[in-house]
Write a protein that binds this DNA or RNA. Structure first.
Lengths: 128, 128
DNA sequence: TGCCTAATTAACTTTGGAGTTATATCGTTA
DNA sequence: TAACGATATAACTCCAAAGTTAATTAGGCA
């Protein structure tokens, strides 16, 4: 599974996103995190979430004595999301080419000029 | 379920991210999308994915005659992700990271070997 | 060594997402 | 109105994620 896949899978869980938020100001031990979410989920559950986050690369993990410290890995997180936004989709480059070709075909079929249509104009036209 | 929840759930599926990519340059009918992914998934499956994407607000939907058109809703998509980054990553950092990510993307576009996610900082810093 | 604490792994159950085929809905057209 | 083409919904099956408790590993210390 590619890294981007893992990141989005990791972010798919609200519990994991809360853990990330909890790590946003400082790194913490698994125990401290478990304490914060006591009553919401068991400690093994948190351990598994942390494992998912680590394997996705959005947190780092460091054993120090008896404790295990976890911390946010901002580079991987914002890097992946910004990259995704720029590309709209990680594996999307070939698809984007197809999409562009389809757009061209449509414009020709409608008799529009060849010039690129500014995306902003198209987007501004539409309401969600 | 809050909007952010829905967006991340929508993005959790690789198939849905591919659909988003396919919509990145122009809007299309459900049929056109279904054609593109024929053999990968059935038409009802695509219909369900489109429904998920629409309810998350990342695509718009418009019925025109017999067809149903879908299109990317970039504002909702980037808005949610940027908001999430701002919330999780310490203040001030995201924009700097963005700029760094843009620089990396440019290098990749110029033919540098594929470095999917910039993990260099993390890997250099941490290793247990 | 033997015990205590921290964290992970094992083994299991439950739930929901994703896919399938079949059917219904809705607009168009003969 | 009947028939057709484009999408959506129904009614399932299947599998993997997420949770639980119990057992295991590993560090620190008497």
């Amino acid at each position: 599974m590619a890294s981007v896949e893992k990141v989005f899978e990791a972010l798919a869980s609200a519990h994991r996103r809360r853990i990330l938020a909890y790590l946003s100001k400082t790194d913490m031990t698994a125990g401290e995190i478990g304490e914060r979410f006591a009553g919401i989920m068991s400690q093994p559950a948190i351990s598994k979430h942390l494992s998912v986050l680590e394997h996705a690369g959005v947190v780092w993990r460091q054993k120090r004595g008896m404790n295990v410290h976890y911390g946010l890995n901002e580079d991987a997180l914002s890097g992946t999301l910004v990259h995704f936004l720029a590309e709209v989709c990680p594996v999307g480059r070939p698809l984007k080419r197809e999409s562009a070709a389809a757009a061209r075909r449509k414009r020709v079929a409608l008799g529009e000029p060849e010039a690129e249509v500014p995306e902003t104009a198209r987007l501004a036209r539409k309401k969600s």
